[in-house]
Design a protein around this nucleic acid. Structure first.
Lengths: 151, 151
DNA sequence: TATTGTTATACTCTATAACTATA
DNA sequence: TATAGTTATAGAGTATAACAATA
């Protein structure tokens, strides 16, 4: 039997297609849910990372998100323009910016995180609670697995 | 107890982060695996769609992949330059290009699909066979579920 | 009038290189 | 010398608008 390329389900059997379109759909739902807060999903993730116990520098935040430091500059620019975060020179190393959330930023983070959680639950609604848990754990295992050639 | 934003696992609990990074990792593996064939994952998906029983027009192929018709133009340009497909005017509707695979394109598709399957299995290796099957079915259910506001 | 393919254009996300100020 | 932040630039991927050929 030949490979099913070209069959109607040729795409739905492709893991790459499934991951991409699942992500696109969740991103669409998130965009709606976060619009009232004036931020997008990436900005929310940055806020969440910056809300760590000890304030982070831009480079540290970029590292945690797997982003480039040049990408982080624009993200912080945007968050700062919205008064959600503040750039402060580190007194210990004046090359670094530490970037704490403003009080408004903390409030925005709390409410937007709630909206994100509700959106994820809506996205996962087609699955049983158990299947949804399985999905999240499987994805965590795949993302946490060592890269090819990685120690 | 406050939301765990800022905790070390704040990101690995985000479905958006997990889907995005799972896709990035698979895309990286696929890029390596497909490099010997001179195509990327998107081009392979286009080849697979175009290999349907009845030859497809560019617009039909774009529709099946969820792409814009303007995006499809550049993809077909690239595949045609590599002699993997041919643009033919449809005799029934001369506005349409039907885009069959060349013999070389069919051979490339067959071998590249094999490489893609092996790559997906390598990507899923951290999971048990059963968990991997669960993951694929869950993603299919999420992607097939009706969109918000969709009939 | 509507549709298909095409081109031009723009916007987002990302990465690379080079500059500055600090260490 | 090396590092953190910044800027400029370029490359994917995607989308919109407008045009030519055809229906």
């Amino acid at each position: 039997m030949p490979i099913s390329a070209g069959e109607p389900d040729a795409l739905s059997a492709r893991l790459g297609y499934l991951l991409k379109h699942a992500q696109l759909r969740l991103a669409g739902l998130s965009a709606e849910a976060l619009a009232p807060f004036g931020i997008n999903g990436r900005e929310l993730a940055v806020l969440a990372v910056l809300a760590a116990r000890e304030p982070l520098s831009q480079l540290e935040a970029a590292g945690r998100l797997g982003l480039d430091r040049t990408t982080m500059v624009a993200l912080i620019d945007s968050l700062e323009a919205k008064k959600l975060v503040e750039r402060l020179r580190s007194p210990h190393d004046r090359r670094k910016n530490i970037v704490p959330l403003t009080a408004y930023g903390q409030d925005c983070l709390r409410r937007a995180e709630q909206a994100r959680l509700e959106t994820e639950q809506r996205f996962l609604a087609p699955l049983s609670r158990q299947d949804a848990d399985h999905l999240v754990r499987a994805l965590q295992a795949l993302v946490a697995a060592p890269q090819d050639g990685e120690d």
